[in-house]
């Protein structure tokens, strides 16, 4: 019933367009499915949940209860491997990166002085290399540079995709960030074992204490290995979700007060949060990469392990 207001708003406000659409969708959806008695906030949250429906501009599903294109179901190895909205955005981010970056690579090799996009990409590449990898891991970390660069750019593009209309942040899904954290975990252990050797790596897990204390120490150290990537996972997920929820809540105020007068205030605030999210998209990509690099660097320090714990 508010759809027309929101749709006219969405033409004016880019920032709110995505959200407004979602609100209209979820409101209608909830209305259809639950008879409208569902809490507004839970309704809004549907927008940031993963789903097997992909919202597309100018596409209307013939089935009125489904908003967006229905994605195929897939079961592999007894697991639900369905393509969902977030899988689509995961791949979209990957395709965008492959296309732009290989183009940039070709151009940068030809031009001695990079311009435009090539220059922009190079700024980030140099930043990751000189401000993240080298200070945290030293020159030995440069062989992990492709991994960390991919980490940074992939997370950044996924974050940014959530800020465009009809887009969704794959990084706002805890499963996606968990996947990234699993890779980070593997890379942290791998780089540590490679730099120290397996023996030193295992010795490190004892914390260098008397063997009688090992039953206490080893579980603590092993737990410590897992908390780092776990924190990475939750941090990225929470930051990306939080911004979206705030924008949705601000737009939701219009529905709570059931008044158009609230709309300008809501939208002004939502725009502010949108700007903040733009910043957070870069910040979180940086933090994830920086912390991964830092943890890898800590594990790679061969001189400072042993008896100083």
């Amino acid at each position: 019933m508010f759809s027309w207001i929101l749709l006219s708003d969405s033409k004016v406000q880019h920032a709110a367009a995505d959200t407004a659409h979602a609100v209209a969708d979820t409101a209608a959806h909830a209305g259809a499915a639950h008879g409208g008695d569902e809490n507004l906030f839970t309704q809004l949250l549907h927008h940031i949940y993963d789903s097997n429906l992909l919202e597309l501009p100018f596409y209307h599903n013939p089935d009125p209860s489904k908003h967006g294109l229905e994605l195929p179901q897939l079961n592999l190895f007894g697991m639900d491997m369905s393509m969902t909205k977030h899988v689509v955005f995961l791949w979209l981010a990957a395709v965008i990166l492959i296309v732009t970056l290989s183009l940039v690579a070709r151009r940068n090799q030809k031009n001695k002085v990079p311009k435009g996009l090539g220059n922009l990409v190079e700024v980030f590449v140099v930043f990751v290399r000189d401000e993240i990898v080298v200070p945290n891991m030293g020159k030995g970390g440069l062989k992990y540079l492709p991994y960390l660069l991919t980490n940074f750019f992939f997370i950044l593009v996924m974050n940014l995709l959530g800020l465009i209309p009809y887009g969704a942040s794959a990084t706002g899904n805890v499963s996606v960030t968990a996947g990234l954290a699993v890779i980070a975990f593997i890379m942290i252990q791998f780089s540590a074992i490679r730099a120290q050797g397996l023996g030193h790596y295992l010795a490190h897990l004892t914390g260098g204490v008397h063997w009688a204390l090992w039953p206490i120490m080893i579980p603590i150290e092993v737990l410590g290995l897992f908390t780092k990537p776990f924190a990475l996972c939750i941090r990225l997920f929470a930051n990306m979700t939080g911004g979206h929820i705030v924008i949705l809540a601000l737009i939701g105020l219009i529905f709570v007060f059931k008044s158009l007068m609230v709309a300008p205030v809501s939208i002004a605030f939502a725009l502010g949060i949108y700007m903040l999210e733009l910043f957070v998209a870069f910040l979180q990509a940086y933090i994830f990469t920086m912390l991964t690099s830092l943890f890898m660097g800590l594990g790679m320090q061969t001189e400072s392990h042993g008896h100083e714990h």
């Binding site: 499963s175 968990a178 996947g179 990234l180």
Partner: peptide, 17 residues
Amino acid sequence: INPGLIIWTIITFVLLV
């Protein structure tokens, strides 16, 4: 947690790297 999505993420990421 959706294990399928975790696996998709890992596959996509590894291929991307």
